[in-house]
C-alpha cells in the first residue's frame, strides 16, 4: 500500500525493550502506557511488563504536507500477547513494507532514551506470524 519511499531505519545501536503497562484487576485486560503510580486510580491496576514482540494489527503511512519537506513515515497498532494494543512508529529497512499480521519487535533509541517514551517498532526476523 505504501506508494512512495518512506523514511527507513539507519541506526544499528537500537536496543530491544519491554514496555511498562498495567493490567486492570477486574477484567484482566491491559493498557499502555502504564497508569501513573501517583494516579488515584492506580489501585485498579497491576503493573506488568510487555513481551518484546507484538503482531501488527493495522497501519498507515503518513504523508506530511509537501511544504514541510518531511518524508512519509509508517504508524502502526501493535497487539501484544498480554492483550494490549500499543500505537507507535514502524521503522522499515529498505524493501520492507508494513503488513497486517507481521511480527514486530519493540526497540528503543539506545543509551539515554526513555524506552516507554522513545520506543519504536521494527519487523521481526521471519516477518509473518
Amino acid at each position: 500500500m505504501t506508494s512512495i519511499e518512506v523514511a527507513s531505519r539507519t541506526g544499528s545501536r537500537d536496543e530491544a525493550v519491554c514496555l511498562d503497562a498495567s493490567r486492570e484487576k477486574d477484567t484482566g485486560k491491559a493498557v499502555f502506557p502504564r497508569i501513573p503510580g501517583t494516579s488515584p486510580s492506580a489501585d485498579r491496576f497491576h503493573p506488568i511488563n510487555l513481551s518484546p514482540e507484538a503482531i501488527l494489527y493495522s497501519h498507515t503511512t503518513i504523508h506530511p504536507n509537501p511544504k514541510t519537506g518531511l518524508k512519509p513515515f509508517v504508524l502502526v497498532y501493535a497487539d501484544f500477547p498480554e492483550d494490549v494494543r500499543v500505537f507507535g512508529r514502524l521503522e522499515l529497512a529498505d524493501g520492507e513494507k508494513p503488513e497486517i499480521g507481521s511480527r514486530l519487535c519493540v526497540r528503543s533509541k539506545g543509551e539515554g532514551a526513555d524506552p516507554n517514551a522513545d520506543y519504536f517498532f521494527t519487523v521481526a526476523k521471519g516477518g509473518k506470524s
Binding site: 497501519h59 498507515t60 512508529r89
Partner: peptide, 14 residues
C-alpha cells in the same frame, strides 16, 4: 509518535 485524527481513521481504513 504521530497520532492525529486522520491517523485514527486511517488505521480503521486499513
Amino acid at each position: 509518535h504521530g497520532m492525529t485524527l486522520p491517523t485514527v481513521y486511517a488505521m480503521r481504513g486499513t
